[in-house]
C-alpha cells in the first residue's frame, strides 16, 4: 500500500515537473496557425474581407470569427486550401469564382492622376503624373483598390486574357450513353 502510494506520488511529481519545464522551455509565442494561414492568403492587404489586411483576416479565421470564403481575390483555390488547413468541410460548388482577373486601364479615360498607383498594394501600376498609367499583368492581384481610387472610372477588372501559353483543354463533358 505504502509502496504504491509513494511510487505513484513520485511518478506524478516527476512527470509534473517535466511538464512544467517543457511548458517553459518549449513555449510557443502566439499561434503558429495564424502564420500558416497568412501564408495561404494572397498577402496584398486589400481589405476586401473587412479585416485590416491579411494578418487580421488570418487571426479572425483561426478564431473562427470569419468564414473560409472571406477572400475574394483568392478565389476557389484559397478557399480549398484554407478549409484543408482548418479542417473545415466546404462545398466549393456554391462559391463564386470569376476566374483569374486583372485590372486594365482604359487609356482614353486615364488622366494621369497617379491615384491608382498610390493605392496599389503590389506596385503593379506604372505611370507618372499626367501620363497614361498601365498595369503589369504579372504583378496585379485583382484586389480592386485602384478601381475605387480612379476618379474617371478608367480602370476595370477583366479576366486574364487566354494566350497560347496559358490555354488548356476544357473538362470533357459527361454525356454518357443511356
Amino acid at each position: 500500500m505504502f509502496v504504491a502510494v509513494a511510487s505513484l506520488t513520485t511518478l506524478g511529481l516527476i512527470l509534473g515537473l517535466l511538464l512544467g519545464v517543457a511548458a517553459r522551455r518549449l513555449a510557443v509565442e502566439g499561434n503558429p496557425l495564424i502564420e500558416e494561414i497568412q501564408a495561404i492568403l494572397p498577402g496584398s492587404q486589400c481589405g476586401q474581407c473587412g479585416f485590416p489586411g491579411c494578418a487580421g483576416a488570418a487571426q479572425a479565421l483561426v478564431a473562427g470569427e470569419a468564414p473560409v470564403t472571406l477572400c475574394p481575390p483568392g478565389g476557389r483555390d484559397v478557399v480549398a486550401a484554407l478549409a484543408l488547413k482548418l479542417g473545415i468541410e466546404v462545398d466549393l460548388s456554391g462559391i463564386k469564382d470569376s476566374g483569374p482577373q486583372i485590372a486594365e486601364v482604359k487609356e482614353e479615360l486615364c488622366i494621369g492622376c497617379t491615384r491608382c498607383f498610390k493605392v496599389c498594394p503590389t506596385d503593379a501600376i506604372l505611370g507618372a503624373s499626367k501620363h497614361i498609367h498601365s498595369v503589369f499583368r504579372e504583378a496585379c492581384t485583382a484586389c480592386g483598390k485602384c478601381v475605387e481610387a480612379c476618379p474617371t472610372e478608367a480602370i476595370a477588372m477583366r479576366p486574364v486574357p487566354v494566350t497560347l501559353q496559358s490555354w488548356y483543354w476544357d473538362k470533357p463533358e459527361e454525356r454518357l450513353a443511356a
Binding site: P42, G43, S44, Q45, D77, P100, P121, T122, D123, A124, E138, A139, C140, T141, S166
Partner: peptide, 18 residues
C-alpha cells in the same frame, strides 16, 4: 494552378516590399 501559385508568391513579395 502552379502558375497562379508562383504569381501569388511574387505578388506577396511585392506587397511586403511596398
Amino acid at each position: 494552378k502552379e502558375r497562379a501559385k508562383l504569381k501569388q508568391e511574387g505578388t506577396k513579395k511585392l506587397a511586403e516590399a511596398r
